[in-house]
């Protein structure tokens, strides 16, 4: 089992023929993901990477029964692409694009409110179920099928956690990169809830950052409803207040969204918090009684 994506996911690539879209679509296909085609307005009817190209998501869905889309279109057009996918009935939209204006995302969030579509991202590395489907830009080879679910706001820091889990001999069910922007489709809590409900997931790793209250929200939910061990880490313990640290969302605004405050809340809620990001994998193995 896994969550969000698996070997049956039928993936449509939006921004298919661009350089980013082409590169990552080939990587996804190479990994074994069932990519069924792509969308580039104006290039419909042609073929790319031996797959059909469509003018609209609607056409693509009709022709291929796609249920997942991944978005590589530039920031100025990305909000439009998300809404187009939702309108076409795509169940899961993964938006990789970084740099979408906040105003556009406010509109997207409102648009998606009453629709069944789930958005992951934007500004995220995507979702991977090792051995089944990679819908994202993460390096596939560091992952291995296993029992740990991972949810994270960051890209390379997620890879770090994945690598540690693989080296600890545990492997992953599904890894969800939720993205670093102020407005994202799937929150830490949403992702934790999915993994908590997945029978194959035995433990969850939750990686957060300074800024916002998503980790605290997830922690309070875990305290009430958690049935599996959760190991947590918050990046930015040394970040000075008020300075932008790469991710627009990672600005320390008030006392409650500092790394220290979040870690304290997480500990109170029964999460196994590690202070060093080097100990994520070892801690999970220890908690599960599977330390080497």
């Amino acid at each position: 089992m896994s969550v969000l994506v698996n070997k049956d996911s039928r993936v449509l690539v939006q921004g298919f023929t661009g350089s980013e879209g082409s590169f990552h679509a080939s990587q996804m296909i190479e990994y074994g993901t069932n990519v069924v085609g792509g969308v580039t307005p104006g290039k419909g009817g042609s073929e790319h990477l031996e797959l059909p190209v469509f003018n609209t998501v609607e056409e693509g869905v009709k022709a291929t029964k796609a249920n997942v889309s991944i978005i590589f279109v530039p920031p100025a057009f990305a909000a439009d692409a998300i809404m187009e996918a939702a309108e076409a009935g795509i169940a899961l939209v993964v938006c990789i694009t970084e740099g979408i204006p906040t105003k556009d995302m406010i509109a997207v969030k409102e648009y998606l409110k009453d629709k069944p579509t789930r958005l992951v991202g934007p500004n995220c590395p995507g979702v991977i179920t090792p051995g089944e489907a990679k819908v994202g830009i993460m390096p596939g080879f560091i992952h291995t099928p296993g029992t740990i679910g991972i949810v994270s706001r960051s890209g390379t820091l997620t890879y770090e956690a994945v690598d540690q889990i693989t080296k600890a001999g545990l492997g992953q069910t599904t890894c969800i990169g939720i993205g670093g922007d102020p407005i994202i489709g799937t929150t830490t809590k949403d992702a934790v809830m999915l993994l908590m409900a997945d029978p194959a997931t035995e433990g969850i790793i939750m990686i957060g950052e300074i800024g916002g209250s998503m980790e605290a929200d997830a922690a309070y939910w875990i305290k009430e409803h958690g049935t599996k061990p959760v190991v947590g880490f918050i990046a930015g313990q040394t970040a000075p207040p008020g300075r932008r640290m790469g991710h627009a969302g990672a600005i320390v605004g008030g006392a409650a969204d500092t790394a220290a405050a979040k870690m304290e809340i997480m500990k109170e809620c029964g999460i196994h918090v590690v202070e060093s990001p080097a100990n994520i994998g070892a801690k999970m193995a220890e908690v599960l009684g599977k330390a080497k």
């Binding site: 994270s152 706001r153 960051s154 890209g155 390379t156 820091l157 997620t158 890879y159 770090e160 670093g180 990686i207 950052e209 300074i210 880490f233 990046a235 930015g236 313990q237 040394t238 970040a239 640290m245 790469g246 991710h247 990672a250 790394a259 202070e275 060093s276 990001p277």
Partner: peptide
Amino acid sequence: GAGLAMATMD
């Protein structure tokens, strides 16, 4: 990566 950069600072 921004997240790994913050983690490295930590």
